[in-house]
């Protein structure tokens, strides 16, 4: 994916230049700098700054979307020629690209499922229970987050080689579960820290066994955190190249496919599939945000809230 990102940044630079021009113009037309106009200027500057930051984030993605409709002359989809639906009509027309995508989705799905289940339970244990080594575990979960991916990938490969494990689909999944686990634990843990334990006591008081309490009360209430964690894990897994490239054997994932293809050709189909993944992720994110808003609205019943009039 890295190679696809280099070029669009030039377009961004152009956008920045034009916006900067308008700022200077605006500043000159303003009157003497008393405090009020100074404040207004500051506001305008802040808005502009925020706008530029957003642009910086979005332009590369916009370029991918736009170039997925390009009809390039050669093998490299780098220079805009003309608008066309060709690539979208036949997204899997490039040999091998469909298989690579399928493998990526399988790896991401499986590693997300396992990492989310394991990570949620680990987070529960870390927040809920006092046990020997808890502080150590709390520290260790940050190590995979802080270690360079190249190092992790190489380390995993040498481990698999030493234990004579043939690299392939399974080893990719194992590697992805490993780096996803930390993200899941950190995400779910933050959700659990504010959890009102008296809700669980109330459930048990009403006759719910510990398992029923978890299934009927705890899990539904921490679900937004679990879903965010799963989405994050899925997104991290589906676009991982570095760690995968060490441990894939002969299995080709989508990022590995692009990397290989980029040496001989970058067909617009890659942009199409990248756009699909992006749009899918975006939809999931919006769903999560919507779901979390809903959860927050009904969260934590606080008796100390001002009393509405008794009806």
């Amino acid at each position: 994916m890295e190679s696809a990102r280099t070029r669009p940044s030039r377009a961004l630079a152009a956008g920045e230049a034009t916006s900067a021009g308008t700022v200077t113009a605006a500043r000159e037309t303003r009157g003497p700098r008393n405090r009020r106009t100074g404040g207004k200027l500051l506001d305008a500057g802040l808005n502009l700054y925020a706008g530029l930051a957003l642009l910086y984030l979005l332009v590369p993605i916009a370029v991918i979307l736009v170039f997925s409709f390009n009809k390039p002359l050669g093998r490299f989809n780098f220079i805009w020629q003309r608008f066309s639906f060709d690539a979208w009509k036949d997204p899997f027309g490039v040999p091998g690209i469909g298989d690579a995508l399928r493998v990526s989705i399988e790896v991401a799905g499986l590693s997300t499922l396992i990492a989310t289940a394991l990570g949620t339970l680990t987070a529960l244990a870390l927040v809920r229970y006092e046990f020997r080594g808890r502080a150590a575990v709390n520290f260790f979960i940050f190590i995979p987050l802080a270690t360079p991916e190249v190092v992790l990938g190489a380390a995993l490969l040498s481990m698999f080689l030493n234990f004579s494990v043939a690299t392939g689909f399974t080893t990719i999944v194992i590697a992805h579960i490993m780096f996803n686990l930390s993200f899941v634990i950190v995400t779910v843990r933050s959700r659990l820290i504010g959890f009102d334990r008296s809700l669980e006591e109330a459930a048990q008081d009403l006759g719910a066994t510990p398992w029923q309490t978890f299934r009927l009360i705890t899990l539904p209430l921490i679900m937004p955190g679990v879903i965010s964690a799963a989405l994050l894990a899925f997104a991290l897994s589906i676009d991982d190249y570095v760690i995968t490239s060490f441990n894939n054997g002969s299995t080709i994932t989508f990022p590995v496919f692009i990397w290989g293809a980029a040496r001989v050709a970058i067909p617009p189909q890659i942009y199409v599939i990248a756009s699909m993944i992006f749009l899918f992720t975006l939809a999931m994110m919006l769903l999560t945000v919507w779901q979390q808003r809903r959860a927050e609205r009904m969260a934590a019943v606080r008796p100390d809230e001002p009393e509405p009039s008794q009806g």
Partner: peptide, 10 residues
């Protein structure tokens, strides 16, 4: 009956 009521919010 809990001081915080502990009603299940969901």
């Amino acid at each position: 009956v809990f001081q915080s009521y502990a009603l299940f919010p969901h």
